[in-house]
Amino acid sequence: MSRIFVVEDDIAIRDELCELLENSGYEVCQPEGFEDIAAQAIKAGADLVLLDINLPSANGQTVLKEIRKSSDMAVIMVTSRAGETDEMLSMSMGADDYITKPYNPMILLLRISAVLKRTQSGGMARASYHGLAVNTARGSIGEGSSEIMLTKNEMIIFSRLLASQGQIVTRDELMTALWDSEEYINDNALTVNISRLRQKLSEAGIEKALETRKKQGYMLL
C-alpha cells in the first residue's frame, strides 16, 4: 500500500482529499503543523507528497526545494492559482507533476497512479553512458564525488533517450513516457526538464550530449 503525505491547510479540502485517497486504497498521513514540513514528509516515509503551494507559514516551492536536498520521493504540487509561472518553477525544482484546483478527483487519482508507477518501477537498474555509470533506480549518473543526481522525470527522459541513443526521440514520445497518456501532457514542463537534464550532463563532463532537432525531437549523442 502506497503512503501519501497530504500537505493542505484548508481543513475541508484536506478531509475530503484524505477520504478520497483512503477509499482508493492509499495510506494517508498529514503533517503535525506547518513547520519543518520537508523533514516531516521524509520522516513519514511517504511514497508521494501532495504539496499545496500556498501554506500559512511556508511556500510549497520552498518546501519542495528542501525535500529535494535529501530525498527523491515523488511530489505533486497543488495550487489554486492558474498560470504557467508556478508550474514551470515547481517542475524546475524537481516536482513530478502539478495540478490546479479545483481538480477532478478522478484526474487527480490518475495522476497519482501515473507518478507512483513511474517512481516505483525499478526499470533498467544500471547502464553506462560515455564511461559513466547510470543507475536508473537511484537516479544518478557517475559515482562517488562525480555523481550527478537526476529527478525522476529527468531520469525517465534520459533513459528513453539512452535506449534510442543516436536516434531521434520525438517530444510526443517523451511526454508519453513521462505521463503515460497524452491527455495529461504539459509541453512547458518537458522543455524545463530537458533544459535541466542538458545542464546536468554538462556538469557530469559530457558537453553537447543532448541535441535538439527542431520540429522533430531530441537525440542523445
Rank of each mutant, 00 (worst) to 15 (best):
G142P: 07
I76L: 09
R81M: 13
G122C: 06
S159W: 01
I107Q: 08
D97H: 10
T79S: 10
I53T: 08
I99Q: 04
A74W: 02
V115T: 11
K152Q: 11
D47Q: 01
L174M: 10
P102H: 08
A163R: 09
Q61F: 08
T119G: 03
R160M: 10
A95M: 12
R118F: 01
V75I: 13
L174T: 04
L161P: 02
T62I: 11
M73I: 15
G60S: 11
I107H: 08
I148N: 06
A41Q: 04
S164V: 00
A125D: 07
G123E: 05
F158W: 07
D72V: 03
S121P: 00
L48T: 06
A127M: 01
S90E: 12
N104S: 12
T136A: 10
L150E: 08
S140T: 15
E173R: 11
A46R: 05
R111T: 04
E143H: 00
A44N: 10
A137D: 04
A95G: 11
L116D: 01
G123Y: 13
R111K: 15
M106C: 05
A114L: 02
K117N: 07
G60T: 12
Y103N: 00
I112F: 07
M106Y: 12
A41K: 05
R81S: 11
V134A: 00
M93H: 13
L55T: 06
I107C: 00
T170P: 03
Q165E: 08
L150F: 15
T176V: 09
G45K: 12
M124I: 14
A58K: 04
I112R: 09
L150A: 08
L64N: 09
T119F: 00
L64T: 10
I168S: 01
H130E: 15
A163F: 03
D72I: 08
L109F: 04
V169C: 00
I42N: 04
E173Q: 14
R138V: 14
I107R: 13
F158Q: 09
K69G: 01
